[in-house]
Design a protein around this nucleic acid. Structure first.
Lengths: 234, 234
DNA sequence: TATGATACAGTCCAGACTGTATGTAAATGA
DNA sequence: TCATTTACATACAGTCTGGACTGTATCATA
């Protein structure tokens, strides 16, 4: 396989500016993690072999083994990356619905489209299934779930209030997340109308007891945990 | 490896009554299918190799290849078997709640414990995940889901009635099934109290609009499709 | 009972996967 | 600028998998 000669490289890119070691490592890890999550979503857990991942990332086998001593380490870090991506999406989502008038419907639709009907959620499903037989992975995912719930909970209670029930908004949205999980898992087996009707059904059923707080038109404050997780990377 | 000599075999069992070819085949297939579903639940899709399955079934590699030309065929038949088992469980479940006073709570609890918090559901999850990359399996599972829903729908409308909503009982229970799917998927990641509160939460929230029909104390009639699916086997 | 069909057992093999070992280029820092 | 560390590439070894193949026991039937 002919590789680009250094001379030619510089001739083309003009300024290949010598990258620092850390930059190189970060970029490489980023590529590997992205490729891993892609592979999990598309090829499944079993199909995500190290060979296929590095091929997808366009790097050599050696690069992977240099950054991750074994497959398990790569997948654990990929889970971590999955959490970060989820955080970012959820943050953007909560922010985007702040100025919707039908906030509940908007939230449900956005959650479905941006969180559950996505390749990232497919990757999550694969990891959850695999965690059944991988104690370490199970712990990582369990902690991850807790942290996401911990982020979502205050936001839910900030945006909404319940009436005529003992359930708090956070409980309702936990229910929603379970519902969306189930729908997402079987999305490819169910017809689009069935999914649509389930989403709308939940909204119709929840709206009498779940109201958007009046006067709250700004997104909730960023919780501290947010920054702790996203310290690195943009 | 010393195998039991035929003479010894007869001496021990006394009446080994020559089995007919069909009996032998059925018994063998039964063992293979049971082992396959077990393996799916315990070892996952990737871990369910032919070697591990035949080992679990206690038969030779040759037996499997004789009855199923390849792995795909075995898994497809295992999906079919999964459907049959689900049918039986659901039937028994619907029958068992016919004489409960708090029918809704009983149904939800029974569904969770007997349908979703089970190894069989784990096997289903593995198959669903795999169906993402196996068109044939996806079709089989999709058809299966439809048939189960078709069985459940009339039963739901038979036992229950809704009030104050456009949703029919069947819609409510489809929502329940999605909720339970999501809970089941992540059961090992969630704490028991969270699951419990979700189950109870749904009941509390659904009970105002979902009432058990008065006077209906007998199980729904067996639909015709039932017998078509369970024609063979007990 | 003889003969063909069916059911099952055990083995072999090509390919694939993971982990490791070794070699080369790039960056660091003294 | 040069030695040393870090980043990456390539080759290889050992293991496992699925499918093909061969041999044997059991059953159906004429």
């Amino acid at each position: 396989m002919p590789r680009i000669a250094p001379a030619m490289k510089t001739a083309v890119t003009e300024k290949p500016r010598r990258r620092t070691q850390e930059e190189r490592s970060d970029a490489m890890r980023k590529r590997l993690l992205a490729a891993t999550l892609e592979s999990l979503a598309e090829d499944g857990y079993a199909g995500s072999t190290l060979s296929s991942i590095v091929r997808r990332a366009g790097v050599s086998r050696g690069a992977q083994v240099h950054h991750y001593p074994n497959k398990q380490a790569l997948l654990l870090d990929a889970s971590e990356d999955l959490l970060k991506r989820t955080y970012r999406r959820l943050g953007a989502l909560l922010l985007s619905i702040s100025e919707e008038d039908n906030r509940l419907q908007a939230l449900v639709d956005a959650c479905w489209e941006q969180m559950f009907a996505t390749p990232l959620y497919r990757a999550y499903c694969e990891l959850v299934a695999a965690s059944q037989r991988d104690e370490e992975l199970a712990q990582a995912l369990g902690a991850m779930l807790k942290r996401v719930m911990a982020l979502f909970e205050p936001a839910a209670n900030y945006y909404f209030e319940t009436s005529g029930t003992k359930l708090r908004p956070a409980d309702m949205f936990l229910q929603l997340s379970c519902l969306l999980s189930g729908l997402g898992l079987q999305a490819t087996l169910l017809s689009a109308p069935v999914i649509r009707s389930q989403l709308d059904g939940w909204v119709r059923q929840a709206s009498p007891i779940l109201r958007a707080r009046k006067g709250v038109t700004r997104p909730p404050p960023r919780p501290a945990s947010w920054d702790r997780v996203l310290e690195s990377k943009g």
